[in-house]
Computed example of a mutant assay.
Amino acid sequence: MNVFSTELIGMVAGIMTTSAFLPQVYQIIKTRNVTSISLVMYVIFTTGAALWTVYGLINLQLPVILANGITASLALIILILKVKWGRLSLSDQSSTIVS
């Protein structure tokens, strides 16, 4: 397999795994409901994606840099919203969802 094919596979995989976070971000922003989001999981995941981005930068691997950089950013948005909106009481969240 040539270098172009390998890079293309990496780019397609990166697009697919990164875009998988978009519906979650949209749903959280729309409903402001973060009760089912695991704070520990997103801390670990965001840190891992950030480290993969650093790895890609060190090794000059564009698919790794782009996919993990964008994924880390989306996961960080979810993490921030979890911390921000996770402090709301259940009644506050219910009234926000209905609004």
Rank of each mutant, 00 (worst) to 15 (best):
D92M: 08
W85N: 13
W52C: 08
I97S: 02
R32V: 03
D92F: 00
I65H: 04
I9K: 06
T53N: 09
A75D: 06
S91E: 03
F4L: 11
G48S: 06
N2W: 00
V40C: 08
L74S: 06
K82C: 10
T96V: 09
T18V: 13
K30R: 15
I44R: 13
S73M: 09
L22Q: 11
L66G: 00
L8Y: 07
I58Y: 14
T18C: 05
N59M: 13
T18K: 01
L88F: 11
G86K: 03
K84Y: 13
A72Y: 12
S94L: 09
V64P: 11
I78G: 01
S89K: 15
N59G: 09
I80S: 11
T96S: 01
D92T: 10
V40A: 12
V40D: 02
T18L: 04
A20Y: 03
K30H: 10
T71E: 02
R87S: 09
V64F: 10
I15Q: 03
L60I: 08
Y55P: 12
W85M: 13
A49Y: 12
T17P: 02
T71W: 01
W85S: 12
K30S: 07
L79C: 04
A72Q: 12
S38Y: 11
G48L: 05
V34T: 04
A49E: 13
Q27P: 00
G56Q: 07
L60E: 14
N68T: 09
I70G: 07
S99E: 12
N59W: 08
A20E: 00
W52S: 05
L22G: 07
I28L: 00
A13P: 09
L81N: 09
L62Y: 14
K82D: 12
S19A: 13
V25Q: 03
N33S: 13
G86L: 04
L60G: 03
V40P: 08
A20Q: 03
V43Q: 08
R32S: 04
G10C: 07
I77S: 10
I28H: 03
V83F: 14
Y55C: 12
N59E: 14
P63D: 12
V34G: 03
I28Q: 01
Y55M: 09
T17S: 02
S91F: 03
V64L: 15
T96G: 01
S19W: 01
S5M: 04
W52P: 09
S91D: 04
L88A: 14
M41R: 05
S38V: 10
G48M: 06
N33A: 06
I29D: 00
V54W: 15
W52H: 10
L66Q: 00
I15H: 01
S19R: 02
Q61L: 15
P23R: 06
L79R: 04
L57P: 13
N59S: 11
L51V: 15
T18H: 06
P23S: 07
T31M: 14
R87W: 04
P63A: 08
G56W: 05
M1Q: 01
G14V: 09
Y26E: 07
N68G: 06
T46L: 10
I9W: 02
I44Y: 11
F45W: 07
T35K: 09
F4H: 06
Q61P: 00
S5P: 01
T31A: 14
T96K: 04
Q27T: 12
G48V: 05
I37S: 09
I65Y: 02
V40S: 13
F21G: 03
L51G: 12
I28Y: 02
Y26S: 10
